[in-house]
Design a protein around this nucleic acid. Sequence first.
DNA 1: TATTGTTATACTCTATAACTATA
DNA 2: TATAGTTATAGAGTATAACAATA
Lengths: 145, 145
Amino acid sequence: MSTAETEVTRGSALAHNASFLLTRASVIAAQRDNRALEPLGLKVRSYSVLSLAVEDVPPTQREIAEFLRLDPSQVVALVDELEERGLVARAADPRDRRAKVVAATGPGLAAYEKARASVVDVMTHLAPDDVATFQRVLEQLAFEE
Amino acid sequence: MSTAETEVTRGSALAHNASFLLTRASVIAAQRDNRALEPLGLKVRSYSVLSLAVEDVPPTQREIAEFLRLDPSQVVALVDELEERGLVARAADPRDRRAKVVAATGPGLAAYEKARASVVDVMTHLAPDDVATFQRVLEQLAFEE
DNA sequence: TATTGTTATACTCTATAACTATA
DNA sequence: TATAGTTATAGAGTATAACAATA
């Protein structure tokens, strides 16, 4: 049973506001992910960068910034740290020498696989019937702009 | 059509990761809300506090902190600002004189109503058939711990 | 001229510890 | 002893402007 205290806020209009719920759910998920990644020396941010660097076609820093909704200057710091640890490497983009693509190294790929096995997928908490709809709507909201 | 650049990241494993999608969707929603609230001198944080202060049974600062997943010291600053602007008032909790309940004033209620009319509900972007499921699952994830 | 990455800087947000008054 | 609120402070995260190299 809930306490009298929590019932007050749980019954509030805010408790049913989708924008607030998105924020609260994402904070809970991010904190859980950060705890899971901590033994590997990663956070959700660096793990996200590593995840993109693992792809067959490695992204430029500009692409990483836009996709993660970070300022390009923040990506510099994230890539710096991963590069110093030998998990990714910067390479000049042959099509545009201003740009640098960020690709995972061998150890980077290994670290990524370990990390991916460590984080618990949010979807495992859901009823099977809800997964498809929730996934689809969430992708819609995440990429609507 | 998407550019070649965005296709790279959109096709990544990360683009289908629920934890990442929650974060990206919440950032987009929060930025949109902040833009909508800016003319009223509010942000999502202060609007959230005001939303709770408007309830019939006003919450204590501790309850606000837990519900918004903020440190109690952050709530102090948020309530300070709203109180200086005359939108909320602190009152001693009769049941526990250590605690302070935060209630909206008349002008605070008016500001809340204006703010609520300004922010666009995320759900209006969804297909009608998806709303109920998405709302239910989101509430589950937002309050699972 | 515009864009990519970079650096420097300031700003906001978040987390921690210590204090007071009450319980 | 423990908890609610407060204060001070430090750390993390975010945003802005300016610069060099390239388009």
